[in-house]
């Protein structure tokens, strides 16, 4: 863990700021020189992965509460955006923000009871919530005899702009999430989140309103997950409940975060880049064995590197310095 000298909690090493700025500027300039649709699409997907993993990291990475239901908010965002754009003619950017607001409107009442649960119970409850939402959207029209979500027929959105548009959209969202994670980590809230992770009862006893802090983290996570879901819906142009509420979205978020290192600033960046970059060629080379290979990688990483890539590197660094 990086040590912050007391009283200087708000300053960042100058080199790190410069490096981050340089990376950001380079990424802004990439599309001007690279016109390959494939490369931009792949980069866009990496940004989306990083953003998703960061959402999960803010909640579960820092608190240790394993959220197995973020797919619910991804799906809510996707459907809210699709319905607003198609039915209401609302502009895209407004739609995704409203999608995020809808997600928060769900997250607070859902979080209030579930965030009192611990361990496996929280994980299973959030999973149940996500599956219940998927089923509800799937069956809504048939049960109520209306034509709203269109069940398994799905919804077609207006044809989206180019890959370049999504490249920039996800770049912005990813950057915002990176900055938020950085700020949260150094803020009062960050300390509280870590304290909850380590010893929740002790944190409560020294004055931390643990439920409130957990709700904040859960709502922030839900908001951005839904925004990303909305953008992805526009990119996909066609969504069904089984796609956007899929448990595989949840699992992907969890695994990217875990691969990189939970509760670290760079974990989601490393994990999402790594997983997306190895998935693509594997998917292309071994379409039938792809999921088997991913399964083997997951098991190997868990057994060999339980702290994730960033966590393992940090540990080496600490050990080599000697404490």
């Amino acid at each position: 863990m990086i040590q912050t000298p007391p009283g200087r909690a708000f300053t960042l090493p100058r080199k790190a700021v410069l490096l981050a700025a340089a990376v950001f500027v380079t990424l802004i300039l990439v599309p001007a020189f690279c016109h390959q649709g494939y490369a931009l699409r792949l980069m866009g997907m990496i940004f989306m992965g990083i953003a998703l993993a960061s959402c999960w990291n803010i909640m579960s990475g820092y608190t240790g509460y394993i959220d197995f239901g973020p797919a619910a908010y991804f799906g809510i965002g996707a459907y809210a955006t699709a319905l607003l754009m198609v039915r209401g003619g609302v502009p895209f950017f407004l739609s995704i923000v409203l999608g995020g607001v809808v997600a928060v409107a769900f997250a607070v009442p859902v979080g209030l009871p579930t965030l009192r649960l611990r361990g496996a119970y929280f994980a299973i409850a959030t999973f149940a919530f996500a599956e219940a939402t998927r089923q509800a959207v799937l069956e809504w029209d048939r049960v109520l005899g209306v034509n709203f979500f269109q069940g398994s027929h799905g919804i077609t959105l207006p044809i989206g702009p180019t890959h370049q548009f999504f490249y920039y959209t996800f770049l912005v969202i990813m950057t915002v999430l990176f900055v938020i994670t950085y700020l949260v980590e150094r803020s009062r809230m960050g300390y509280a989140l870590k304290a909850i992770h380590e010893a929740e009862d002790a944190a409560e006893l020294i004055g931390v309103n643990t439920l409130k802090i957990k709700i904040y983290a859960y709502a922030i996570s839900a908001f951005f997950t839904a925004v990303i879901g909305g953008v992805d819906a526009y990119w996909l142009t066609y969504i069904t409940p089984n796609d956007v509420f899929s448990v595989h979205i949840t699992i992907k978020m969890v695994i990217m975060c875990l691969l990189g290192g939970m509760g670290t600033l760079l974990g989601p960046v490393v994990g999402a880049s790594f997983l997306t970059l190895i998935s693509e060629p594997l998917w292309a080379r071994f379409p039938y064995d792809y999921l088997i290979i991913i399964g083997v990688i997951i098991v190997l990483v868990i057994v060999a590197m339980p702290k994730g890539i960033v966590g393992t590197l940090l540990e080496w660094k600490v050990d080599s310095r000697g404490t």
Partner: peptide, 26 residues
């Protein structure tokens, strides 16, 4: 992983799920 935080065993069994289900599919 049984001594590790519980998340490890959840994810680990998910990996095992992917392996078994997709091997069976093949």
């Amino acid at each position: 992983v049984v001594e590790a935080p519980p998340i490890m065993s959840y994810i680990c069994t998910f990996g095992i799920h992917l392996i078994i289900a997709n091997l069976a599919l093949r």
